[in-house]
């Protein structure tokens, strides 16, 4: 069965919020809030709240990146220092911890930063081809609510958007 993608553009953020709240309350049968994608010109945690808990995993990558950085830092420095025992150490330890801590600290941050960035690119889905339904108005001042619905739910969801003063409603058949 074919499925339709619908996108409604709202001028008023409160109206978009109310439309999402009604979807959440299953005012349109067969449409779930988890199917909704919200597009907005600014970071909007207040409106995102109505979408419910959606997980973020970036920090896990950060943690393991930083852990790798500090561990790699220690072993890299220690291996370099221990492989050069012929160098006169003047009674100092071959692997000096106080000075190595400085470099381990830098490596913790270096790898932490780069794994965070890598995770962001992957988890945010950046670098993929943009949706043809994308509206440039979202980058100016409008909020868009986008979701895939079955044909029988198309009209009810459009009616819901119209009730909440959607400025524009776009649709396309996705499969």
């Amino acid at each position: 069965m074919s499925e339709h993608r619908v996108m409604a553009l709202f001028n008023d953020f409160d109206e978009a919020f109310h439309a999402l709240a009604e979807i959440r309350e299953h005012k349109v049968k067969g449409v779930d809030i988890d199917d909704v994608t919200l597009l907005s010109p600014i970071e909007h945690p207040e409106i995102e709240e109505v979408l419910g808990e959606r997980p973020i995993h970036v920090q896990k990558f950060t943690f393991f990146g930083a852990l790798f950085g500090v561990t790699f830092g220690f072993f890299f420095l220690a291996a370099a220092q221990a492989s050069f025992l012929v160098q006169p150490q003047g009674g100092k330890p071959v692997i000096p911890l106080p000075s190595n801590f400085v470099l381990m600290y830098e490596m913790l941050i270096f790898f932490g930063v780069w794994t965070t960035v890598f995770a962001f690119f992957v988890l945010a889905g950046l670098g993929r081809k943009r949706d043809p339904m994308y509206s440039e108005k979202v980058n100016i001042d409008q909020v868009a609510v986008m979701l895939d619905v079955k044909p029988e739910n198309l009209e009810p969801i459009k009616a819901l958007f119209k009730k909440h003063k959607a400025q524009e409603i776009r649709e396309e058949v996705v499969r």
Binding site: E43, E48, Q59, T62, A119, F120, F121, A124, R130, V138
Partner: peptide, 23 residues
């Protein structure tokens, strides 16, 4: 990078920016 401002991008952006600031 194909940014379109969806909630998934903003959520990850928010967390990433905060983590980078902390570093």
């Amino acid at each position: 990078l194909g940014w379109r401002g969806d909630d998934r991008q903003w959520r990850n952006f928010r967390k990433t920016y905060l983590l980078l600031a902390c570093f």
